[in-house]
Amino acid sequence: MSTRDVVIAGERLTLHPERAVFWHAQGTLLVSDVHFGKGAVFRRAGIAVPSGDTEDDLQRLDALFDELAPRRLVILGDLVHGAATERSAWVDDVRAWRQRHAAVEMVLVAGNHDRHFDVASLGISVQPDRLAAPPFVLSHHPHPHKEGYVLAGHVHPGTVVRDGWRKHRLPAFVFDRDVGMLPAFGTLTGLHEITALPGRQVFAATPAGVIPTR
Rank of each mutant, 00 (worst) to 15 (best):
D118Y: 03
V137K: 01
V137M: 04
W97Q: 05
G158W: 09
R98N: 09
A120K: 05
V174P: 08
R130Q: 14
R100P: 11
G148W: 11
S121M: 12
H140F: 01
A184Q: 13
L108D: 13
F136L: 01
Q127C: 12
A102G: 10
S139K: 09
D163Y: 11
P135F: 06
Y149Q: 02
L182I: 01
K167G: 08
H145T: 05
V179K: 08
A110C: 12
V161S: 06
M181Y: 10
S125L: 14
V174D: 13
S139F: 11
H145G: 09
S139L: 07
A184G: 14
G148T: 05
N112L: 06
D129M: 14
A103S: 15
R162T: 10
G158D: 15
L191C: 01
H156F: 06
D114P: 02
R177L: 12
A133S: 14
T159N: 14
D178E: 14
G123F: 01
L122T: 11
H143E: 14
A110Q: 15
K146L: 15
H113G: 15
R162F: 06
A120T: 03
I194W: 12
P198S: 02
A172P: 11
H192R: 13
S139W: 09
G190F: 00
V137G: 01
P144C: 12
F175G: 15
W165Y: 08
A120M: 07
R162G: 12
P144I: 12
K146Q: 15
T159P: 14
A110L: 13
P183V: 03
M181A: 09
